[in-house]
């Protein structure tokens, strides 16, 4: 036990929390924005898989992580807009659209990986880990001055560019939602689309923007997964982060700060799981904790909400 404790109190452990949280945070921000616009995107998992695959392939072909990153983002956005087309134009239940994207995201990406590598490399590969080298991954950044501070420097400095960006994007998303007219329109559409439409806000356009944003975030998250978290893409590598994000969104009360804290909590639990195995304990014991916490906190929220609604009316 003391062994575990000393493992946990190391800077490496705290470092890993941030690293693990970053992709969850991206997906959580995606979930938050679509939820503000009044719907749910449960296809984040699949979107991230596609972005991760194409990002890693593009960075290999171009020999540049920038190209890979941009490709991942574009793939995420385009696919999310296609989802929007099915949901908003063909009136498909958005939840079913999400499930379809996830179905394609798990096996379909492997298929695409195999046929693309078969064409370009001459043999079908089941992952791109053999292609992606550290040189074409998203760079890690050490922050001058801070990196020299004992402990804190080790925790905060040296992260992937996309890890820093995740927290920056979180702040920017919050600003977007609460300080810009776009954010105002998104929130208005989500809460009372008739009110928004009655003052000339295009509800359809705002919904497309929201789902496109979720694709953008999935692109960031996917790029991070295959070009920073791991070197290269492999099957089912997103491993439920898209679903965890839905929980983090709900647990964080649908707000960016809450979503960030929830993402960190999930990151913490996973990091803990890794440390468990490091000291010979079973990581499978720590891994379900965040999921259980989600259910419990949703139940508590529900309980509070129902009781508030039951409160007697105040006399006039």
């Amino acid at each position: 036990m003391s062994n575990l404790l000393s493992n946990i109190l190391s800077p490496g452990f705290f470092f890993s929390i941030f690293r693990i949280s970053a992709p969850i945070l991206y997906a959580t921000l995606a979930a938050i924005v679509v939820e503000k616009a009044g719907f749910a995107n449960i296809g984040l998992e699949g979107l991230m898989m596609f972005s991760a695959l194409f990002g890693s392939l593009a960075s290999y072909y171009a020999g540049s992580w920038v190209v890979g990153f941009l490709t991942a983002v574009i793939v995420g956005v385009v696919m999310s807009l296609v989802m929007g087309f099915f949901a908003f134009q063909l009136q498909t239940d958005i939840i079913l659209v999400g499930i379809a994207i996830n179905l394609m995201g798990s096996g379909g990406t492997l298929f695409l990986c195999k046929i693309i590598t078969d064409i370009t490399e001459g043999k079908a590969m089941a992952s791109t880990t053999g292609l992606v080298t550290s040189g074409i991954c998203i760079p890690n950044i050490s922050i001058p001055l801070i990196k020299d501070i004992p402990f804190i420097g080790e925790v905060i400095s040296g992260h992937s560019l996309l890890t820093y960006l995740a927290f920056l994007v979180c702040i920017l998303t919050s600003i977007m939602l609460y300080r810009t007219s776009l954010g105002l329109n998104i929130r208005a559409v989500g809460e009372n689309s008739n009110a928004a439409a009655s003052v000339g806000v295009s509800v359809l356009k705002i919904k497309y923007i929201a789902i496109g944003f979720s694709g953008l975030m999935s692109g960031f998250g996917g790029a991070f997964m295959s070009m920073s978290y791991a070197q290269g893409w492999s099957q089912d590598m997103v491993a439920g982060r898209g679903f965890i994000a839905l929980a983090a969104q709900a647990m964080g009360g649908g707000e960016c700060l809450g979503g960030m804290l929830s993402s960190l909590l999930f990151g913490f639990a996973q990091a803990l799981g890794i440390k468990f195995s490091a000291v010979g304990l079973d990581s499978n014991l720590a891994s379900p904790i965040p999921y259980a916490i989600t259910i419990i906190s949703l139940a508590i929220f529900g309980f509070v909400r129902i009781n508030r609604a039951k409160k007697p009316k105040v006399a006039a």
Binding site: I101, M104, G107
Partner: peptide, 25 residues
Amino acid sequence: NVPTQLIAIVQGVIFLFFAAESFLS
């Protein structure tokens, strides 16, 4: 020599069009 996971894409596409309320409306 076609990867077997093609099934996922075929399944996903069929799923989408079956679920689309306004498809062929």
